[in-house]
Design a binder for these strands. Sequence first.
DNA 1: TTGAAAATAATAGTAATACTATTATTTATA
DNA 2: TATAAATAATAGTATTACTATTATTTTCAA
Lengths: 228, 228
Amino acid sequence: MAIGIKISLNEKLYLRDPQESSLGKRIIKHSILLIDEIGFESFNFKKLALQMESTEASVYRYFENKHMLLIYLVSWYWEWVSYLIDINTLNIESPQRRLKVIIKTLVFASKDNPSIEYVNESVLHRLIIAEGTKAYHTKEVDKDNTEGFFLNYKKLSSKVADVISEVNSDFQYPHALASNLFEMANNHIYFAQHLPKLTDVKVEGEDFGEVEKMLEYFAFKLLGCEEE
Amino acid sequence: MAIGIKISLNEKLYLRDPQESSLGKRIIKHSILLIDEIGFESFNFKKLALQMESTEASVYRYFENKHMLLIYLVSWYWEWVSYLIDINTLNIESPQRRLKVIIKTLVFASKDNPSIEYVNESVLHRLIIAEGTKAYHTKEVDKDNTEGFFLNYKKLSSKVADVISEVNSDFQYPHALASNLFEMANNHIYFAQHLPKLTDVKVEGEDFGEVEKMLEYFAFKLLGCEEE
DNA sequence: TTGAAAATAATAGTAATACTATTATTTATA
DNA sequence: TATAAATAATAGTATTACTATTATTTTCAA
């Protein structure tokens, strides 16, 4: 449990920094729990305020609307995964082994890792799996992208692409493979749980080991190196 | 231009079969155009009725709500792709070549293909790319799945998985590769257009050739056979 | 310690959304 | 041509996505 980590995010994502006040932290905490519970479509600031015993108007002073809150949570998540990848790969020389650690982190981010009191990482992971892509599947994607709302995801993706290129500098699609690993990690957990015909892996509770194995197989097969 | 194709879909998807009346066909036609134009979040039946010069109540007699309409459009699209794959692979013996045709069809579905008067397939393709996954990323996914709302997608995915297994019967992840090809086809067109840092391919207008090439590379590399 | 500023809570209000209901009118068909 | 079915017109309701105003509490600097 590392207390005191502060995830650093684009200031444009919020009206007031929620990490700087106790009400802000409660907004983060309860929005994660409530979106996970009722889904993003049914979620709104009135219900959130009710659940956290505050008022709608107070929540609106932190986030412009629920879409910005979702982007905030998604950014928070990827920045946190990025931080985990950094500390987990710090002393590893071999790019192959670093890529393996990256895959493990992607799949098991929420387990056995430093945690922040006001964020339940395991619930946040489930939320990202179910709702994450809605952050950029909107009509405002280009404007939002210009504002830098997806920087955390893009930076992480490019960090992973660099490792991929280290593993095999001839591989032509490092960025695509990187983003595909992120998407697959989330999609196939979701498929295993809800649409099992769309995958070949099984997940039991929070054991995503088969997903990890599959991603390793895909990545190393594509990079033309058998696993160490 | 093939006139008279009727895409067959689960009757539970609608209250009245929109393919059976001219108002129904206008609902399909205009909902595709309007969702593409303003995005699914802003879309509603009142705006649709206004645009197509009918009334909200009339639209509600065809579809329970806009989410069911989206599922309908997504199902329609995959059923149509499935039909295209069938006719395009009909006389091809080699599974490798069939897989190539499948990939081409996924990427270029909307071009040079039989069309149905009330559906602009090219716009529908863009809609599916931008909004498609919202059909199953909801709290009701399990209930909807039980009702068979995703049968078309699952059947198509399993059809492609069979071809993959024909190409390489030792490959352990045929369903995952199949669904991943679908997701990648759509995601990387979207990324190239809106979040280019997340991919390595470029698309120009409706030329998705680089996406096709990448999918071929991924598929055949994973299946351990160099392309013919 | 007190007084100003900032943050939050309480309350109310508005325009739009996601529907349902009722009745009138048009169209199809037997 | 009568009847039923489909559609249009209209109205209405509960909820949503906000904004505005004022009251109360907290912060923290002089």
